[in-house]
Amino acid sequence: MPLSITLTINGEPRRIDLDDPRVTLLDLLRERLDLTGTKKGCDRGQCGACTILVDGRRINSCLALAISHDGAEILTIEGLARGDALHPVQQAFIAHDALQCGYCTPGQIMSAVGLIGEGQAGDDPERVREGMSGNLCRCGAYAGITEAVIEAQRALTSDAEKAA
């Protein structure tokens, strides 16, 4: 089977010739496409640092084979801002100091974007905490993360209402 796949990454369709079927989405992004914003924290689905959106859903890219995702649409941290305009989740993370060392931050932010898209947590802090529990932060920035997600959720909801 030829190891050639097509992925749309941050809006840009890309044809990718995989040199090895073992390549995960995470290692494809980081080691072959120089999209190093997505981080490897455990490589085993236990920390969330590698969270990206695949077809709009947040997943651990370390436990996803690239070859299984032919045709998928992928959004990484690099594709979230519109030029200099940060995404509301990114803005809220800065405003609430929802980061320290910053290593888990891309995963946290992509997870938050996924969470808000899922529409299950709303602005209930307990549901946000639960919904963000797949993303470890060793520095302990959780309080700010929870606040940031709630604020971004409200901002996005109000934007959506205005648009409607």
Binding site: R30, L35, T36, G37, T38, K39, K40, T76, I77, E78, L80, A81, L86, Q90, F93, I94, A95, D97, L99, G102, Y103, T105, P106, I109
Partner: peptide, 17 residues
Amino acid sequence: TRRDGVLKVTGAARYAA
């Protein structure tokens, strides 16, 4: 706010690896 905040929330902050 953190001066490195934008780099960290956009994935542009480069760590060793």
